[in-house]
Every structure is written in structure tokens, then in C-alpha cells.
Design a protein around this nucleic acid. Sequence first.
DNA 1: GATGAATGAGGGTTCATTCAT
DNA 2: TATGAATGAACCCTCATTCAT
Lengths: 232, 232, 232, 232
Amino acid sequence: MKSSEIIEQKKRGPGKGKLKSDRSRAAILAAATKEFSQKGFDGARVDQIALRSKVNKNSIYMYFGNKDALFLAVLESAYLKLREAQDDLHVLTLDPIVGIHEFVRSTFRGFLAAPELISLAVSENVHRGSHLKTSPNIKQLYNRIPATLDQLYKRGLQIGEFRPGIDMIELYVSIVSICSYHISNQHTLSILLQTNLMTEKRLDLREQNVATMILRHICVDPERASVSNLNN
Amino acid sequence: MKSSEIIEQKKRGPGKGKLKSDRSRAAILAAATKEFSQKGFDGARVDQIALRSKVNKNSIYMYFGNKDALFLAVLESAYLKLREAQDDLHVLTLDPIVGIHEFVRSTFRGFLAAPELISLAVSENVHRGSHLKTSPNIKQLYNRIPATLDQLYKRGLQIGEFRPGIDMIELYVSIVSICSYHISNQHTLSILLQTNLMTEKRLDLREQNVATMILRHICVDPERASVSNLNN
Amino acid sequence: MKSSEIIEQKKRGPGKGKLKSDRSRAAILAAATKEFSQKGFDGARVDQIALRSKVNKNSIYMYFGNKDALFLAVLESAYLKLREAQDDLHVLTLDPIVGIHEFVRSTFRGFLAAPELISLAVSENVHRGSHLKTSPNIKQLYNRIPATLDQLYKRGLQIGEFRPGIDMIELYVSIVSICSYHISNQHTLSILLQTNLMTEKRLDLREQNVATMILRHICVDPERASVSNLNN
Amino acid sequence: MKSSEIIEQKKRGPGKGKLKSDRSRAAILAAATKEFSQKGFDGARVDQIALRSKVNKNSIYMYFGNKDALFLAVLESAYLKLREAQDDLHVLTLDPIVGIHEFVRSTFRGFLAAPELISLAVSENVHRGSHLKTSPNIKQLYNRIPATLDQLYKRGLQIGEFRPGIDMIELYVSIVSICSYHISNQHTLSILLQTNLMTEKRLDLREQNVATMILRHICVDPERASVSNLNN
DNA sequence: GATGAATGAGGGTTCATTCAT
DNA sequence: TATGAATGAACCCTCATTCAT
């Protein structure tokens, strides 16, 4: 499917609006999330989604229009879920260091709790963002993040805790990278490094390192970054 | 294809004599690298590879057996290429801080120069490493890395430059994460953050940040990590 | 659907009371006429008919049983409409030449005014008349035509205006042919002859020629056929 | 399929040009001609064509690209066949009256011998000529016809046999109408008129009437049109 | 050994029709 | 009775793979 066509996808949905039985819709979405995240967009099979969700295959087309639109719906719902985990509002009320730490931790745990999102994003990148481009909803969810980080950062600067000159986009990219790469690339990494990276012990270690790394990066005094000091 | 079947792949290759046209083999490999990295394993088409390599489709099967085996060959060759960029031997001769910095930079640039590898790895992870698992060659290439990093690290420890307690596996995972995530996820990130992450300016900035982040993480004195000081 | 099955179509119709909404029935029929004549039986979509008639899809099945029965109903109503245009009763009161001329003209104009019939007939012929065969009503509508023509013809013979030996079936077939072919085949003809055959000018010309051709065919004196003389 | 898309049909065909086994192509074309003419474009099934031609279904796509392109190929070959029957070159050498008569007869017989063409044209008209529009070849075949008729007509005018003022496009449309309508609409006509129109006797009668009607239409002296006089 | 032709198992999608409220 | 939801059989088309020169 040419990406240009995605825009004009018919989102018919069954009937006009009285979405009575949304149980089917939810079931499809859940099954599709599994299938797409396990096999990628191209590897996923609509038949399998029908089977997994125990709805008739045609219902999928009734509810979502086509495979591309279904994928987008799955993607949107997964992104939404991650953003719910990453609660920035709460974070804004905290001490800057603690706030950044919280943000990193909630991101880390959000990915861990919803690894589907990582797989879905991976697949979406293979397709050069063709689905996501057509989604106005999602963009709004995410353009608040740099602003949130920025508020914390500015406060940290004022009290002399943070180094000047840090770019928030860069910072966010770094956070997301180290919070998700070990999940998205777990199989190749585990094989190449000959260590299972997804054991509980390893994940705990990683969570600590991830937070430390970010904080050491932005704090003037690296000792402030050590996790043990955060609760003081 | 079930991953269990991959093992029994027939790697016939054309006859005994390793005859004249290993040019065909190379052409197929090059074309397949492009196709697989652009479309992923499931999105890639054998027909396209034949077309791109100007080789009869049948030759692909002659040389590589089947699509899975071809993918593995592509993967192996790409990993090999990256490891050639990441020259650890030279790095071992350097000052620990400079050595780590060099390693990070060569990794960063290696990924930038060969983004196919990132895409291929992504695809391979979707398939849970089913191809890579069957490759004895590749594992050996990579199990030297933690050892290399460890040598540098130990020297850094001895001279009091590095913090104790850093896990080399963790360190490597962090390096690879921040050196490649912005490439593999460039499309979704760019859409969500509404900024093109692959401009030259952004990439330069990222390269600096990546090195700084790693060095600040392991150095006792974070000032030693600033790039400007490295050439002293 | 196998033609043998058509006979046993259930013509349920909605219940006993011929209740309030025969408006629905009419709406369905109108929409189905459009859809079937535009797309043919196989190209027509029941969904579209429901949409066009603003009636629940199920009602279509309530009122007409199935797609085949609906098509037959459409066909019958269209044939009825044509026969109403072709008023033979009036024609019987006229001078033979004028009568034939009127008959031809009313046929010509009837087709022009209701081109759906032509399309429907075309579609029905593709299906070898399988629907029409099951309709006892329609046959009766049409078996009066040769008789009507025959009456006019006999009168024309008696007064020496018409040539002997003309077969009424043949005559009718000829009339219908030249009155409808340019409509049913307008697209291919227009493309092949590279002229739009449905312009007003062309249609006027055709109407004249059609009448002339039929009259010259049956009149002893071809000059009597010229349209200008008819009103004398 | 939107008609606009038809133009960009890929006409791959197997391999580059060394069409070795054209037996498959011919078999597909023959089977497709039957299927399309019996069921119409929308009613025709690619599976059936594969079955009838005893080729693998995919070969159809190898040779013709898709259903639309296959239909066009069938249409072109059928039109070509008709034009071969309608040999105008020979006709041009004849006496005008005999020439027209010959042309009409060859058209009549051409249709009778290849009734598929009529069905195909019918189907193409349902689709508003969307396939034919994209065929440059066919147009050239047909734009010679009015010229041919015109040459005969002009010679007939000069020797005072033909009436002035006859439009060649009109004439051709009339000829085609009365030569094919009884075939394309045989089923509905036979049912409505309760007479089988395709018996040998009826067809002979029709052939005579068709020729007579055209000649009486254009000859000054209608007696010259009677078939029995033509051989004098 | 290299080429064009063939194969058959799905893949996404659509459709007429029926359920269930 | 009329509406939205569901059903399953096909339909067109594609793909990895193998034959047969």
C-alpha cells in the first residue's frame, strides 16, 4: 500500500455511531496488538487476528477498514498507554532531580510493562512512519514531553543542580533509547553477548544504570545522581 | 517458517568449483541487504532482490538456499562490517578515557555509515533472533567486545579515573542504545517530536552527547568527560 | 446463483398488513433500478442499494427475498414502464403509416427516457434470461405487440401502402434494435467511431433515421416514408 | 477498480520478451474469452479461467497482469477477429449496392460466428468503456469503416443509385444494431416474444431482412434492394 | 549452470445473507 | 418491525519456491 493512500482510509465502523458492542472492537484491538507486535506489520496476519479475537474476519474490516488502519489504531492505543504511564503532571511537582529520576523510571517501567509498543514502533519505522504520519491525535500527546522536561530542567538550573546547555530533545531521545533498546533488541543482543538481558536481575541493574546515567549527565555534581541519595 | 526449521537449511551454493561468478553472489548480497533493510524480512521480496541484483531469481536459490538463509547471510555480512568499523585493537592501545571515547565514536559512526545493520537487526529481533541463533560465526565476533571494554575499564580503574562497579555488558548495551536508537526509530521520533533528527546538525550534537554521557557515567571526575578536554 | 434455484425464491414480503411503509418498497426499487442498471447484476451491490434507498439492508431481504428476486422486480417494473410509453391502443386508431411511425417514435423515446431498461435487459441477457423466465406477468405484457403491429400492417396492406410478406416478429426486432443499440453500446461505439453518439443533435438525427428506415422497409412507395410527408 | 487506474496496469508478461510458450497465453485468452462472454466482466471468475485453460492461476497474472488487463486483451482480440471478417478491402472493389450488401452480410455473419464479441462489448459498455479507452490499437481498426462505407456510398451517389444525405456514422450504427441486437438480447427477446430467435430459419430470415432494410434505406429505387436482384 | 515458465498455498478484502435485539 | 452486528464463502492477487529446458 502506498503511504499516500493511507490518508483516505475509510473508517466506516459498524453502523453510524451507536457503538453498542464495543466488546468486539476491544477484542480485535487486543488481538491485533499482540499479532502486530509479535510479527510486525508485514508478518502479521489478519486471519490470525480474527482467530485470536474470536471475531469474524470481516468484522475487523467493519470496525477498522483495513489492515493499515487497524495497525494505526493499535499504534495509537499503545502510544496512549505509554503516555499514561509517563505521568508528567505528577513529575512537575517534584524536586528537579527527583522529578527527572521519576520520569526516567516511569518511562523505563512503562516500556517494560508494554513491550508491544516498542515492537509496534519498530515496525512503524520500517514503514517510515507512514501510518503515524496520518494520525493527528498522537502528535499532541507527545509534544508536551520536551516542555515538561524543560520545566524541570529550568528549575534545576536555577538552584544550581543542573549543568547548562542541555538540549531537551537530545535528553528525551537518550532516555527513550536506553529505556527501550534492550527490549527491542533483546534477542540479537542476548545472542551476541551470550547473556539473557531480560532476567529480573539484569533488568533491575539496567533500571538503576539508566537513571544514574541520565542524572550524571545533567547534574553538576555527579554524586547527586546516585540513586541511594535520592531519598534524602 | 518455523524457527526450528531454519537449522536444517540447505546451504548448497553453486557446485564445487567456486567458479567464475562470485560476482553474482556479491550482487545478490548487496541487493538483498538493501531490500531487507528497507522492507524488513517479511516485507522484502525475493523478486525484487533478483531484479535489483540483475540476477536470475533461481540463482538466489542456488547460492543461498532460501529466503531465510539469504537473510542470515546478509545479517552476518552486515555485522562483520560493523565490527570492522569498531576496531577494538587500536582502541586498546589508547588512554582509557580516550579509548572509551574512541570506541563510542567508532560505534556511532559505524551505525551512521551502515544504517542497514540497524534495520536488519530490528527485523531479526522481530523474528526473535531465529536466524542469528543458527550462526556460529557471528557470536565469536562479538564476544570479544566486553573483554575489550573491560581491559580499558580496568586500566581506568587503576589510575583512578573510572568509577568502580560498572558492568561491561550494561555499558555496551548503553553505548549501542544511544548510538543507534535515533537511527532505527528516526521516523516515529521525528513525527512525535516534530523535529527531523537526522539533520547534520542534530547528528553532530548527538555524537557529542553520546560520548559525553558515557564518559560522565564512568568517570570519577565528570569534567574529564567533556569532549574539549580529551585532546589534552 | 444457479438459474435452477431462482424458481424457488421465497417472495415473502413484509407480513400481512401491507402496512404503512410501502414507501420503503418503492425506495428500494428505485435505488435498485439505478444500481442494477449502472453496474449490472453482478456489479451491483446490495449495500449500495441500501445506502441509496436509505433503508436498512435487512428490509431489502424482507421485501424482496434476495438479490435475484430484487432484480426480477426491478426488471418487471422497468418493462412495465416501457410498455406504458409504447401505447399501442392509441396507435391502433391511426393511419397505418402514421401508426407505425408513432410506434417507432414512442419506442425510441421510451428507451431514451428510461435507459435503465436497456441496461437491465443487457444484464438479464448475460444471465440468459434466468430471472425473466420465472416471471409470468411480463410475458403477457409483450405478446400483444406483434398483434398490434399486425393490425396496422394488415390495414396498410389492404390500402396498398405496405409491401406484403413482412414478418411482424422480425419487424419488431428491427425496431427495438435500432431504437436501443446506440444507447446500450454508446460507450464502445463512441470510442471506436470517435464520435459522441449521445449528443442531442445525433439523437435527433437518429430518431429520424430510425423512423425512415422502418417505413422505407415496409412501404411500397419509399417516398411515403419521408418524415416530412407524414403530417399530410 | 477505478477506471483511472486501468491505465497504469503493469503488463509484465513472463520474462522479457522471448515468449517461448505462447501456448499458455493462447489458452488463457481462449478460456477468458469464453468466461467473460458468458458471465460478463463482473461475473467472470479468474479461477474459472485458470481451470478452463488448464494453466496455473498465477500464470494468468504473469501473462496479463490482472483481470482488467486480461479483459482488455480479450476484447482487443475479439474486435480484431470481427474486423477480419468484415473485409472492407474486398468490398471496395465491388459495385456499390453489392458492396454494401456484402459489408452488411459479412458483418452479420461475423457477429454470428463470434457472438462472444457481442457479449464482451455489452459488458464493456456496462463499464462505460473503461477498458477500451486505454487501447490505442483498437481505435485504429475501426476508424477505417466509415471511410470505406463512404467510398462505396459516393460511387453509388455518382451513378444515381443512392439517395443523398445519408450519414455514414448513422448508417454504420444501424448496420451494427440490426446485425447484433438479436444476438445480444436473444434471451429476453425470445422470452418476451415467446419465439426462439436463434433457430436457423429465423437467422436466415433475419439476414435477408437486415440486408434489405439497409439497402432500401439508401437506394433511390427500393426494388434494387431486393436480394434476388443482386446477382443480376 | 542459467533462464523462463510453472506451481500452490495463502493474503487482504468483499459480498450476499442471516442473527439477535 | 426495523436496526446494527455477525457470518463464511469467495474473489483477486502475491509470494516463495521449483521445473524443465
